[in-house]
Design a protein around this nucleic acid. Sequence first.
RNA 1: GGCCCCAUCGUCUAGCCCGGUCUAGGACACCUCCCUUUCACGGAGGUAACAGGGGUUCAAAUCCCCUUGGGGUCACCA
Length: 567
Amino acid sequence: MDSNSEPLISPPVTRFAPSPSGHLHVGGARTALFCWAFAKGRGGKFVIRIEDTDQKRSSDAASVGFLKDLEWLGIRWDEGPVYNAPDGSAVGGGPHGPYFQSERLDLYNHHIQRLLDAGSAYEAWDSAEELEAFRKDSLARKEAFRYRFRGEPTAEERAKFAAEGRIPVVRFRSALVAVTIPDEVLGHTVLPAGEVDDFVIRKKDGFPTYHFAVVVDDEFMCVTHVFRAQEHFTNTAKHVLLQDALGFRRPIYGHLSIIKNPDDSKMSKRDKDKVLRKAVKEQGLSAPPANTVTHEEWSSWLASDNVQLSLDGAIALATALQVVLPEINVDDFRRSGYLPEVICNFLALNGWSPGHDIEKFDNAFLKERFGLDRVLKTPAKFDRVKLLAFNTDAMNAMAHDDFVTRCRAHAVIFRPEFLARLNAEQFKLLMLATKERSKTLDEPFKSNAFLLESDESLPFKDDKSVRKALGIGATLEAGAKSGLDHLRAMHSILAACAWEHDALEHAAMEYANVHAGGKIGSVAQPLRIAASGATVSPPIWDTLLLVGKAGTLRRLERCIEWAEALR
RNA sequence: GGCCCCAUCGUCUAGCCCGGUCUAGGACACCUCCCUUUCACGGAGGUAACAGGGGUUCAAAUCCCCUUGGGGUCACCA
C-alpha cells in the first residue's frame, strides 16, 4: 500500500470540474488524466462536473466541447454529462446528477439557509463602490483586503437599501482561527488566523459562488479525492471552513503545479493571439489580409489584448502571415497530428514520473502506477520539441496498416482534399512512402501539398539548393552534364518507361551509370524538383508514381522551361 | 505589498523522506562522426546541473537556517 491510499475511504471517487469551455487546455487535460488514473487504478470512479455558476461566462451548447477532447484522449468518465462517443457508446450519466451546477440551485440554497439559520452566514448589502473603496484603503496601507462582518443593518438602513434596489449577497462568517490546509502533494500547511475573510457564498444573482458549490457538490457526489490546479491551494482553507460549518466530510486534497511555456510565462489560451499580434506588428500591417478576418473583428482585436480571435480567424491569419500558432488546447495538438496516447504519456511526465528511468508508457500503466507520492511540486515547462520526439517514436513504432488507418482518420477531419485527390491505393502508397519520416499524422499531408497542385500550375521554388541541383549558374567541366541536362534526357527515357517502381529505378540507374558517373542522386534531385517543385519529397520513384506518368512528363517540361528562363 | 508554496543539466526528470554505493543517472535538445538518391530515420561518441551563503556531521544533492530567484493567492471568476 502506498502512502496516499486512504484506509478509511475506498474505493476512491475523483472529479474533474472545469468551467464550461469549448476546448480542453493541456493543463486541464493533465489534471483530468491524473484524477482519472488515480480513481481507475484503485477501482474507483471518475466524475465530471460542470462549474457553470458564472452566468456571464456560461454560454451555449458548445460550452462542453471539451468533452470530445477528453474522450479522444482516452479519458472516460463514470459519472457526469452524457456524451455520445464516436464509437457509439454513451459516456456519463449517474446517480448524483445533475452534473451542471446551474441545475443544482435548490440544493445550494437549502444549505445556505442552514448556515444563515445557524448564524454562520449573513447577508451583506455593500455596493460594488463601497467594496472598491475598502480595497483601495487596504492597498494604501499595504495590507491585503479582508472583508469582516460590519454589523447588522438597522431597519432604517435596510429600508433605504431596498428602496435603492440593492440586493444582498450572503457571506460566510469565517472564524478567526488558523486553518490547516490539508494537501498530500505540497504537504499540510497552516494558514495564520485571519487570513480567510468573510467571503461571499451566494451572489447577488442568486447563484452560489464557486467555493460554496464545490463544497456542496463534492459532499453529495461522494468525492473522496480532490486533485486540482495549484491556484486553488489557498482556496482550500475556505472549503475546509465551509465543510466544518456544514458538517460535511473532508476529501483528500492534492494541488498540482501549473504548466508553463518555455519562456516561463503561464501557458494560456491567449498565447495564439500573442503570436499573431507580434507578427502583425513586425510586418507593419494596418488592415487584415484578404480572406482572413473581417475589418470589425480585426479592429476590435487590435484594440484590446483581452479580445481573442475565433479559431478559424486565427488560423486564417496565421496562414496569411506565415506564422505558426502555438498549440495550447488538446484540439490544437490533434489538428497538428499528435497521437492521443503520446499526449497523455507526455502530459503525465510533466509533474509525475514512475521512476527507474521509465519514460514511455500508456494509460494502462499510468493507471496502475499513478500515486500522489511521486507527483512533483515544481511547475514544468511544456517542451513541444520533446513531445514531437515522443510522437515521432510512436509513429515509427506503428504497424503499417495502423499508420494508414490513422492517417485516413486524420484526413477525414483535417485533410479532406487529399482524400478527394487520391484513391485508396494511392493514399496508401503516399502514407507508406512518407511514414518513416513523419513526425505527426499531419505530416504526410503538410509536406506533400505539391500533389494537390495541378500539373499546369505547380510552382517551382527558386532557391540555392534547387539551383545547385539543376546546375544553374554553375560552370561545368568539359563533357559533364548539368541537372537540367539530365532532366531533358530523362524526359524521353521516362516517356518510354513502364510506370512502375522497379522499372523507373532501373531505367534511371542505367542512365546514371552512363551519364552521371553512377551518381543517381544527381539525376534524382532534378527529377524531384520537377515533380514536386522543390528538393524535398518522398522517395523519388514513389513521388513519380503518385504524380503519375502524364503529370510527371508535363511537370518535367514545365520545369525545363522554367529553369531555362532562369539562367 | 500581506499570506502561502517551490528550487538537480537549456528542458522534462531519477536520486532527497531512510546522509556515505553520486567523480549525480535517463530522456529531449545541442555538438562531432557514421549511414544516406532529397528530407528524415537510424547508429556511435561528446558538452552540460545539485541557485548562493551559513550551519549539523567523520561524511550533505540529500537534514536545519538565511539570502536570492520563481510560483500561487488576496473577486458578487472559477
